[in-house]
Nucleic acid binder design. Structure first.
Length: 831
DNA sequence: GGCCCTGTTCTTTTT
DNA sequence: GAACAGGGCC
C-alpha cells in the first residue's frame, strides 16, 4: 500500500461548498449502506466524486480501498478525472471502472482457479452468436423451432440470473423435447467457451460471482481490499451484478482472514463488510430487457437493513418547463415513489413541437433548426438528436449530409463490429489465445486461401479423432492428406500465428513485440490488407481504410500504454461502449439512441420519431412492464435537455423500404398543452376523427381558432392514392407551416402551385429527397446566383463557404426560407 | 471451392 | 432496402 500523497488544501469542509443539504448528507453520511435516490440532473456525479474525495481527504480510506463502478468507460474516466481534480492528483490506485472491466481485472488474476489461463479472450455478442449458430446447426435445433437470436437471448437471460446448465436441468421439464434440446445447446455452448479459453459478456459477471462463491479465500482478498464500494446507475443492475455487489461487501469470516492483515478486525476476528453506496433513479431504469432488475433498487432498504436513504430532487440541469414535461410524463407510471424534480432556474423556453410529412421532412426541420441555433451562437457540440431505433438514423444522416450539418453518430454499427475489423481482431485473438477455435476458424479463409467448409471439417474431424486442439490439427495438417495447395495455405497461416505469438515473449532478445507491431505483422503476413486494396471494389477500399485505421488505433494504444499487452488491448476493444465514443470537443451534433443518451446532457435536445410503435416501440408495448419502461425511456430523453427541447414526429415513416402511416405517441398527450409550442402539430397534420388519440383531438379547437392556416396542396394531395390512411381529410387540416416547413413538399418545385404530381406512385415521394446521388463539385456558385432545388424550389445564393467537398451554400429560398446546403450533394441546378 | 442469384427476414434498446 | 442464408451453376 502506498503512502497517501499530500492532500493539499482539501478539507472535508471545502468539499461541501456549494452543495445543498441533501447533497451534503449524501457526501458525509458514514455507515454500512447508503442509497442515494438521484433524480435526473440532481448532481449525483458531483455527490459521488465529492464523497470519494472526502473519504480520502479525511484519511478514512486509502485510494486503493475504493471501488467505484460506473455504467460506461467514459463515465469512469470522467469520475477518475474529477476525483483527481478535487484531490490534486491523488486518485492513483483507485478502481473506477465498469462492472465488466472490474470483473475482467479480477478474472485475469484468478483465471487459474476456474481452469482458464490469464490470456483468455472475451466473446462479444457477435462472437457468441457465431458460436451458437454453429451449435444450433450441428444439433439441427432449428427443426424444433430454435433460432439463433432466441437461443442467445435465453442463454444470456439465464446467465444474468446465474442459472448454469445444471441448474437449468433441475428447473426444466424432462418430458419437453424442446427443453432437452435447449439444455443440450446450453451445455455445448458452455463447453465450447471453456475449450476456447473464452468468456462471453455475461460470463464476466457470472463467473466472477462463481469464483467468489467457490473460493471464499479468493473473495476475501477483494472483500478486504475494497472498504468502500460505490455503484452508479444502480437501477440498471441485473441479478448477477447484484450478487457480485453482495459478495464484495460481505464480511470476511475469521478463517479467511490472513495472518498478516493490516485491516482492522471485528470482535470475532473477522473483517466487517465494506460500506456500500449506490446511486440510482428507478424512473430511469431502461434496461429491463437485458435483465436489469428494478427491485435491486426498490428493495435496497430491505436488502441492507439500516441503510440510509437520501433523496436528491433539486435539478441543476434543466429549465422548469422541461422538468414539468418530464414530471407530467413520468407521473403516469404507477407503482413508483412519487418524486418531483424542480429547478430554481426559471421556466425557460417552451418545448418546440413539429410534425413532418415524412421522416425526411422531420429531419429537414431538425437540420434547419440546428443551423438556426448555431447562427445564434449555440455550438454544434451542445446539440444532440435522439431516436428510439437505429434504423431512424438513415433519414437523419441523409438530410444532415445534404444540409451540411456536422454530426457524429454514437453507437449504431460500431467500428469494431465491422466484418473486416472483426477479422483482424480474430487474428489477434488467435495469436493471444491459441485455444480460441472460433477466432481461428473465422480467419481460416479470410483473406481467401481456398480453405472451404470441407477442409475446415477435415481439420475438425482430425482434432476430434486425435483429441487435440484445433490449432494442433492445423500444425499437423500434413498428416491429414489434403491437397497440396490447401495444405500449404494452412501451414503458412499456422506459421504466421505461431511466429507472431512467439514474438510476444518478453524474454525475446528484442523484447516483446508491441501491439502495433503485432497487428502489423498479422495484417501484412496474412496479406489481408493487400488483398483488399487490390480488389478494385470501392467497398473493399473502404474496408482497407478501416483496417488501416485499426492499425493506427493499435499504434496509438502503444503510445498511451507503454506497458500494455496484447491481451489488455483486446480487453479494451471488447469492452468499448457506445457512449465511450463520445468526444466532447468534436464540434459536431451528436446522434444517438435514447438508451445511449442515458447519463448525458446537452443544451439542446431533439427527440425525434415520437410516434406510436416507435416509442412506445411496437415490440416493447406487448411485454409486461414494457409500456412503463418505454415511458421511462422517453423521460430519460426529456431530462437530457438543459435549455431547449424539441419533440418531433412524422405522419408517415419509411420502414422495410415502404412508407407506413405513423400516429403521434401517446406520451405526447401526457405533456400539458401549454408547455409545447407546436410549429406544426400532429393535429394539423393528421386530423380526421377517430384515428388519433383523443386528447390530441380534444385540442383541436385551439388550432382552428387561428387564422392563416389554410393548407397548401390539399387538392393535389387529396387525390393521391395508395397512402394508407393518409387521405383527403388529413390533407385538409394540413396547414402551411409558418416557416414553410414541410408544406414545400406539396408544391411544384418551380412554381409553388398546388399541382404536385398527385397521381405519381408513392415511390416518387419517398425517393424525392433520398434518391439522387450527384456530384456538383464542378458547379460554380457565387453570391446572387439563382438556383433551383428539387424540394425547396428557387432561391438566391446568399453566401458560399468552404472548399471542394465541403463547399456550403447558404441559400434564401423564395418560399422555403433560408437553408444551408452541401453543394456537392444538394439536388440543385443553376438557373 | 467460389460466385452469383434469389428469397427471406428483419429492427428495439446494449455491456 | 439491406443483410444474410441457401441453392444452383461454373
Amino acid at each position: 500500500m502506498t503512502l497517501l500523497p499530500p492532500v493539499s488544501g482539501v478539507t472535508a469542509d471545502s468539499l461541501l461548498d456549494g452543495l445543498n443539504p441533501q447533497q451534503r448528507e449524501a457526501v458525509t453520511y458514514r455507515g454500512p449502506a447508503l442509497l442515494i435516490v438521484a433524480g435526473a440532473g440532481s448532481g449525483k456525479t458531483r455527490v459521488l466524486t465529492h464523497r470519494i474525495a472526502g473519504l480520502i481527504a479525511s484519511r478514512e480510506a486509502w485510494p486503493s480501498q475504493i471501488l467505484a463502478i460506473t455504467f460506461t468507460n467514459k463515465a469512469a474516466a470522467e469520475m477518475r478525472e474529477r476525483v483527481g481534480a478535487l484531490l490534486g492528483g491523488a486518485a492513483e490506485g483507485m478502481w473506477i471502472s465498469t462492472f465488466h472491466s472490474a470483473c475482467v481485472r479480477i478474472l485475469r488474476r484468478e483465471a487459474e482457479h476456474l481452469g482458464y489461463t490469464q490470456s483468455f479472450t472475451i466473446y462479444d455478442s457477435a462472437d457468441s452468436k457465431a458460436l451458437i449458430r454453429r451449435i444450433v446447426k450441428e444439433l439441427e435445433a432449428d427443426l424444433l423451432g430454435f433460432t439463433v437470436p432466441s437461443v442467445q437471448g435465453r442463454i444470456s437471460k439465464l446467465k444474468n440470473e446465474l442459472v448454469d446448465p445444471d441448474e437449468f436441468s433441475r428447473q426444466a421439464s424432462d418430458r419437453d423435447p424442446r427443453d432437452a434440446m435447449f439444455l443440450d445447446i446450453y451445455r455445448r455452448y458452455e463447453r465450447e467457451l471453456r475449450r476456447a479459453n473464452a468468456f462471453d459478456f455475461d460470463d464476466l459477471l457470472g463467473q466472477t460471482v462463481t469464483l467468489f462463491r467457490a473460493f471464499p479465500e479468493v473473495a476475501a482478498k477483494y472483500q478486504r481490499r475494497f472498504r468502500h464500494v460505490l455503484v452508479d446507475e444502480y437501477q440498471d443492475t441485473n441479478h448477477a451484478q447484484y450478487a457480485l455487489i453482495r459478495e464484495l461487501t460481505k464480511r470476511v469470516e475469521p478463517k479467511d482472514v490472513p495472518l498478516d492483515t493490516r485491516t482492522e478486525l471485528d470482535a470475532e476476528g473477522g473483517i466487517e463488510g465494506a460500506s456500500l453506496t449506490v446511486v440510482g433513479d428507478s424512473d430511469q431504469s431502461i434496461y429491463a430487457f437485458r435483465g436489469a432488475d428494478i427491485r435491486n433498487i426498490t428493495d435496497f432498504e430491505r436488502d441492507f437493513p439500516g441503510a440510509r436513504v437520501v433523496l436528491l430532487e433539486q435539478n441543476y440541469r434543466s429549465t422548469q418547463n422541461i422538468l414539468e414535461a418530464a414530471n407530467a410524463v413520468i407521473r403516469n407510471n404507477f407503482d413508483r415513489v412519487d418524486k418531483k424534480l424542480w429547478s430554481a432556474d426559471g421556466a425557460g423556453e417552451k418545448i418546440v413541437g413539429f410534425t413532418g410529412y415524412s421522416g425526411h421532412d422531420e429531419a429537414q426541420f431538425v437540420a434547419d433548426e440546428i443551423h438556426r441555433l448555431h447562427d445564434t451562437g449555440v455550438a454544434y457540440g451542445e446539440m444532440a438528436v435522439f431516436y428510439r431505433t437505429n434504423a431512424q438514423t438513415r433519414a437523419l444522416e441523409e438530410i444532415f449530409i445534404r444540409s451540411a450539418v456536422p454530426y457524429r453518430l454514437i453507437g449504431g454499427t460500431k467500428f469494431y463490429e465491422r466484418a473486416e475489423i472483426k477479422d483482424v481482431v480474430a487474428y489477434l485473438m488467435a495469436t493471444a489465445n491459441p485455444a480460441d477455435e472460433l477466432a481461428t476458424r473465422r480467419i481460416l479463409n479470410s483473406p481467401k486461401r481456398g480453405i472451404g467448409p470441407a477442409t475446415e471439417t477435415a481439420l475438425w474431424d482430425f482434432a476430434q479423432k486425435r483429441d487435440v486442439p484445433f490449432r494442433e490439427a492445423m500444425r499437423r495438417v500434413d498428416e491429414i492428406g489434403l491437397g497440396p495447395k490447401v495444405t500449404r495455405a494452412i501451414v503458412e497461416l499456422t506459421r504466421l500465428l505461431d511466429e507472431t505469438a512467439a514474438a510476444l515473449d518478453p524474454d525475446r532478445p528484442t523484447g516483446a513485440a508491441t501491439v502495433g507491431e503485432t497487428v502489423h505483422a498479422l495484417v501484412a503476413g496474412s496479406r489481408y490488407l493487400e488483398v483488399l486494396m487490390a480488389s478494385g471494389n470501392p467497398q473493399d477500399e473502404a474496408r482497407a481504410e478501416n483496417v488501416e485505421e485499426f492499425v493506427n488505433v493499435a499504434k496509438e494504444y502503444d503510445k498511451n500504454n507503454p506497458d500494455g499487452s496484447l491481451v489488455e488491448f483486446l480487453t479494451e476493444v471488447a469492452l468499448v461502449a457506445a457512449a465511450d465514443e463520445l468526444d466532447d470537443e468534436s464540434g459536431s451534433v451528436s446522434l444517438m439512441t435514447l438508451h445511449t443518451a442515458k447519463g448525458l446532457e446537452y443544451d439542446t435536445v431533439f427527440l425525434t420519431g415520437i410516434e406510436e410503435d416507435l416509442i412506445p416501440h411496437r415490440m416493447a408495448a406487448q411485454e409486461p412492464g414494457g409500456a412503463a419502461e418505454e415511458r421511462r425511456l422517453f423521460y430519460v430523453g426529456i431530462t437530457r435537455a438543459r435549455r431547449r427541447l424539441y419533440l418531433t414526429l412524422a405522419m408517415t415513416r419509411a420502414q422495410f423500404g415502404e412508407s407506413a402511416v405513423a400516429m403521434p405517441s401517446r406520451y405526447l398527450d401526457e405533456i400539458p398543452t401549454e408547455l409545447i409550442d407546436w410549429r406544426v402539430s400532429p393535429l394539423d397534420a393528421t386530423s380526421r376523427g377517430g384515428t388519433q388519440p383523443r386528447a390530441l383531438n380534444a385540442r383541436r379547437g385551439e388550432w382552428e381558432g387561428r387564422g392563416g392556416r389554410r393548407p397548401v396542396g390539399s387538392e393535389a394531395y387529396s387525390t393521391a392514392g395508395g397512402y394508407g390512411r393518409v387521405g383527403p381529410g388529413d390533407a385538409e387540416a394540413r396547414p402551411q407551416g409558418e416557416r414553410g416547413y414541410s408544406s414545400v413538399r406539396f408544391r411544384d418545385a418551380d412554381a409553388g402551385r398546388e399541382t404536385r404530381n398527385a397521381s405519381k406512385p408513392k415511390q416518387k415521394w419517398i425517393n424525392e429527397v433520398t434518391g439522387q446521388v450527384r456530384d456538383n463539385s464542378a458547379m460554380e456558385l457565387e453570391r446572387g446566383d439563382r438556383i433551383r432545388h428539387v424540394d425547396f424550389g428557387e432561391g438566391t445564393i446568399r453566401a458560399v463557404t468552404g472548399t471542394d467537398a465541403k463547399r456550403i451554400a447558404e441559400v434564401d429560398f423564395d418560399t422555403a426560407g433560408r437553408k444551408k446546403l452541401l453543394v456537392k450533394l444538394a439536388p440543385i441546378e443553376k438557373l
